[in-house]
Simulated assay, not measured.
Amino acid sequence: MMLCLFHGRGFIHMESANETRVSEFLLLGFSAKLEIQLILFGLFLSMYLVTFTGNLLIILAVSSDSHLHTPMYFFLSNLSFVDICFTSTTIPKMLVNIQMQSRSILYETCLTQIFFFIVFGCLDNLLLTVMAYDRFVAICHPLNYMVIMNTQLCGLLVLGSWCLSVMGSLIEFLPVLRLSFCKCIEIPHFFCDPPEVLKLACSDTLINNIVVYLVTGFLALIPFTGILFSYSQIAFSILKISSAGGKYKAFSTCGSHLSVVSLFYGTGFGVYLSSAATPSSRTNLMASVMYTVVTPMLNPFIYSLRNRDIKGALGRLLRRAAASH
């Protein structure tokens, strides 16, 4: 006989004493006060629109300008697309909940959010690693750059990043399906953050935690080590350049990417350090906002403000758009 417990606005269907199936979770978000929610709605809607528009302009500028049809900008346009997808995984649902004065998220929607959150998070990480390799080849092997970074290799690097991200997400996501959840179905977050969801499980999560550590080590720490190695080689190559102008020119080609890498990993490590120090705290929530919302929003500004080619392409794109009207 199936029983149904009502908890807040979420339901828990119980087929037996030892087996539960949650139909909804509750996303607690930032505050229950209506006036604060309205402020947050305006703030996050503005940030989402800026993120979407800025990254879309980068994609259009790169695709429409033949001068930017190079490996570096090919990877940049892919990163911009992934950033749009990354923010679209979490922010729209939060905005809908605020608008509807609801905190609920369906079990299936929550799992879907977890899957794509991991996919696009891993993709961000791997594409930044690929871009670091591109800068390494450009500065350390400039004469062979176009031979090494040919169209086929660039396509394979992006395709490989997608495949690894999807496989890594599946490996981390599938063990979640076997979990049963207790009466407490409140997630102290504005989206279904995988670690927070695991905390709600009343079944054993040992396998899930092992899988998380393995996937994180393979798709986060190893690429990060690759980025550090690439930049150590870049630094040695720049130091060998005799003229100050040559050093500045070499460094300026990777300055934007280095800024984005610092922002991405700085906020990412900040989340895990803050969660380790003060679990489920407001600090953890704000740190999550930094890498899920603020970092994708700032990436287009970093690349456009520090890159003359991008600024020129954006100017030509906007002039063509204005002339067409």
Rank of each mutant, 00 (worst) to 15 (best):
131 M>D: 04
325 H>T: 09
115 F>C: 02
69 H>W: 01
42 G>K: 09
249 K>R: 14
295 T>K: 08
75 F>T: 07
175 P>E: 08
71 P>G: 03
233 Q>N: 10
294 V>P: 02
30 F>W: 14
68 L>M: 06
137 V>W: 05
135 R>T: 09
276 A>L: 15
208 N>F: 02
121 G>A: 07
250 A>S: 06
280 S>R: 08
132 A>C: 05
30 F>P: 08
273 L>A: 14
258 L>A: 05
29 G>Q: 07
90 T>K: 11
187 I>P: 10
96 V>F: 07
237 S>D: 03
235 A>N: 05
19 E>V: 05
42 G>M: 04
65 D>I: 09
68 L>T: 10
144 N>L: 15
208 N>H: 06
136 F>S: 13
56 L>Q: 05
21 R>F: 12
156 L>H: 14
295 T>R: 01
239 L>W: 10
116 F>T: 07
268 G>Y: 06
143 L>S: 15
201 A>E: 02
25 F>W: 07
241 I>A: 01
237 S>L: 04
234 I>A: 10
190 F>M: 09
291 Y>K: 03
290 M>S: 12
258 L>V: 06
257 H>T: 11
5 L>P: 04
67 H>T: 15
71 P>N: 04
19 E>S: 15
159 L>C: 15
239 L>Q: 14
40 L>E: 14
288 S>H: 03
248 Y>M: 08
15 E>Q: 11
144 N>A: 14
293 V>R: 08
167 M>D: 11
160 G>Q: 07
228 L>F: 13
253 T>D: 07
203 S>D: 04
19 E>N: 11
175 P>H: 09
295 T>E: 11
150 N>F: 01
238 I>Y: 10
324 S>F: 06
226 G>S: 08
148 I>V: 13
87 T>W: 06
189 H>Y: 12
274 S>I: 12
37 Q>C: 14
270 G>V: 01
35 E>F: 10
83 D>V: 03
188 P>E: 13
24 E>G: 13
78 N>H: 11
317 L>F: 05
46 S>Y: 07
149 M>I: 01
172 E>Y: 12
228 L>I: 12
263 L>A: 02
324 S>P: 10
175 P>F: 06
29 G>L: 02
147 V>I: 15
17 A>P: 00
274 S>N: 13
230 S>D: 00
54 G>S: 03
137 V>G: 08
83 D>I: 03
74 F>R: 12
268 G>K: 02
321 A>P: 11
161 S>I: 00
221 L>V: 14
182 C>S: 15
103 R>L: 05
149 M>R: 11
177 L>Q: 04
184 C>I: 13
